[in-house]
Design a protein around this nucleic acid. Structure first.
Lengths: 221, 221
DNA sequence: GTACTACTGGACTGTACGGTCCAGTAGCTA
DNA sequence: TAGCTACTGGACCGTACAGTCCAGTAGTAC
């Protein structure tokens, strides 16, 4: 019963994993992968509710039945898109995360984030946050997936800060958990304001705030 | 030519104000107001793309022609919803803004924001940011309206901080512009993380970060 | 080869949607 | 009263959508 605007309501059992068939052949794996990539693209352009399966199929390319062979329904596909979005965002920062273990690395990380927004013209915001805003309140599975993306993001920051504490670059009493959470919040909020104003300086100022706060915990000498 | 998913594209002239007729009678004003309020409600529940005019009309209540009497199209209605959302969010903090001119007032403001999220169960996030994520990339007028909401929000914080500087509660060299921008970013990011995790403590930690940063500018003695 | 499964193609269905149309009814001015 | 404008009602239209169906074609194991 295709009842529009209700497709996001989880209809299957609560166990995460009630998805469409997993491909067993290489060809099938590629088809499935093409579909998810195309869906992520269309979602980025038109939003999750605005993304039509016809468009996804045309772009993959994949036929209607291929979509429904690998995914139960649109919500199921969107869950995979959420997963892929997490990976894309975190993978894109992998090298930068590795350098987060020093003050200079921290600064470089913020510079890269701002530079990316400059290149994008302040458009788009954070893909994870976008999906959250569009689907988070209507599909708890997706919300959980996206939350885990934020968790991993925060953990990467925290690991860097912890390394800095252990290395003596930050004072031993510094609260890495809190600083990491606060930094990720500054980043996310900076992205929201940048998106609203089409002005990456909003992100710059937000991240400068985060840096300044961490800076108050630097060891003297 | 009703082309779905294209309704957000501005079709009228660029001058903001190419909206439907403004009511001249009291009755008309009430009808228009009912429609906007109902639309805001439906948008909050279903998202902007998921909000159907049938649902808005049923809830107002108002007939199809009433909707198209006061608004050119759905995009036009959404612009009014954006306006109303700004007002609702800022009006809801009016009293708190007035107290932002002291450290205690600042703390009270953050407490109130966190308490609201506790009451909401961490659901919903910021209504302005939600609209931005759903429509900001597809309708520049709406993006501008929402950006002005953030501007006013930031200005209220900045005014408070400026007062604190002038009163000597913050050091004279404190950068109120930067601190206000950074604080609003922390707030927005905290709301995103709170929404993702359904945990208002994310907002608490983000705002504690903002408070700590401002705290480093407090006058000693 | 046969048999079986994984995968693919695309026509088709029901419906909810944004938007249009026209015939009305209040309410105000004279 | 008449005449005018502001406003209201709801049937209607074309279409884009999610989801279904069934007839296929590859690939693989024997």
């Amino acid at each position: 019963m295709p009842l529009r605007n209700n497709w996001t309501v989880k209809s299957t059992n609560g166990i995460l994993g009630a998805m469409g068939l997993q491909p067993t052949t290489e060809r099938g794996r590629q088809t499935r992968q093409r579909i998810v990539a195309a869906a992520a693209e269309v979602v980025a352009e038109n939003g999750a509710l605005g993304a039509s399966l016809d468009e996804v199929g045309a772009r993959a390319p994949a036929s209607r039945s291929q979509l429904y062979h690998y995914f139960n329904d649109k919500a199921d596909l969107m869950r995979s898109v959420a997963d892929a979005t997490n990976e894309a965002v975190l993978e894109g920062q992998r090298d930068l995360f590795a350098g987060l273990d020093s003050w200079d690395g921290l600064v470089r990380w913020t510079d890269a984030l701002v530079e990316l927004q400059v290149q994008l013209g302040g458009r788009g915001g954070c893909p994870i946050a976008n999906l959250l805003g569009q689907l988070g309140e209507r599909d708890d599975d997706i919300r959980t997936v996206l939350a885990s993306g934020f968790d991993r993001w925060e953990a990467s920051i925290r690991d860097g800060l912890t390394t800095m504490i252990n290395a003596g670059e930050l004072r031993p009493d510094s609260d890495a958990d809190w600083l990491a959470a606060s930094t990720l919040a500054s980043l996310q909020g900076g992205l929201v304001l940048t998106q609203a104003r089409r002005d990456p300086r909003a992100l710059r100022r937000a991240l400068d705030g985060a840096l300044a706060l961490i800076g108050t915990h630097r060891s003297t000498g």
